[in-house]
């Protein structure tokens, strides 16, 4: 038994060295060399200041911006989290109805409009960076009104959404989505 124990001690040491130190360091070095932008968090710089990460959604409450999905952590990922509400939970039903109502009111939509599902349901990570193209388009009336845009500028906003829509990866995987943070940055650039 003593022999086995010593052997497993040696083996444990070896594995810790190999998989706990050499392997992650190797990956870090190669990752940093090959894909330094991604490995460091796909950060967005503006005027040499960090304003966010392409992959981590931000909270937008101001009416001059496109709004992201509901988040139970209001986009503060320390720690990340989701609602975990079951479909049978009355709170979820109330939240969904409230979100529908608020979204319609905020964006001057008629009552019969079908609200995209990501707007009425909160995300899994709490920092989902994306919404659908439809959800972005439905917010245009509010953007126009709060930014006091003329019809030419309004058209630009519309085509901005189209150009910011990411297609399925390799034409197959995932869905068509719009990155809200990038869209809002572009929106600010478009309309000073």
């Amino acid at each position: 038994m003593k022999k086995i124990f010593i052997q497993s001690l040696k083996m444990f040491f070896l594995m810790t060295l190999l998989t706990g130190i050499i392997y992650p360091l190797f990956i870090t070095v190669f990752g940093q060399l090959l894909f330094s932008y991604q490995a460091n968090g796909s950060m967005i710089l503006k005027d040499e200041k960090l304003i966010g990460s392409k992959l981590i959604g931000q909270n937008f409450a101001d009416s001059i911006y496109f709004h992201p999905r509901p988040s139970v952590i209001t986009y503060n990922p320390m720690p990340s989290g989701a609602s975990n509400l079951a479909l049978s939970n009355a709170t979820l039903h109330e939240q969904v109805n409230d979100r529908k109502k608020i979204f319609k009111e905020e964006n001057y939509l008629v009552d019969t409009v079908l609200i995209p599902s990501e707007i009425i349901f909160s995300s899994g990570s709490g920092v989902d960076p994306h919404i659908s193209k439809e959800a972005a388009i439905l917010q245009i009336p509010r953007i126009i009104k709060s930014r006091l845009l003329n019809s030419e500028e309004s058209k630009k906003v519309f085509s901005l959404i189209t150009s910011q829509t990411e297609s399925r990866q390799f034409g197959i995987l995932g869905g068509e989505v719009v990155n809200v943070l990038e869209l809002n940055i572009k929106l600010d650039e478009l309309i000073k």
């Binding site: 479909l87 969904v96 609200i115 995209p116 599902s117 989902d128 994306h130």
Partner: peptide
């Protein structure tokens, strides 16, 4: 249909669907 929505997206991420 329980929520009169097109998809159940609670706790799901947009990039996956």
């Amino acid at each position: 249909s329980t929520f009169h929505s097109s998809e159940l997206m609670e706790g799901k991420e947009m990039r996956f669907g």
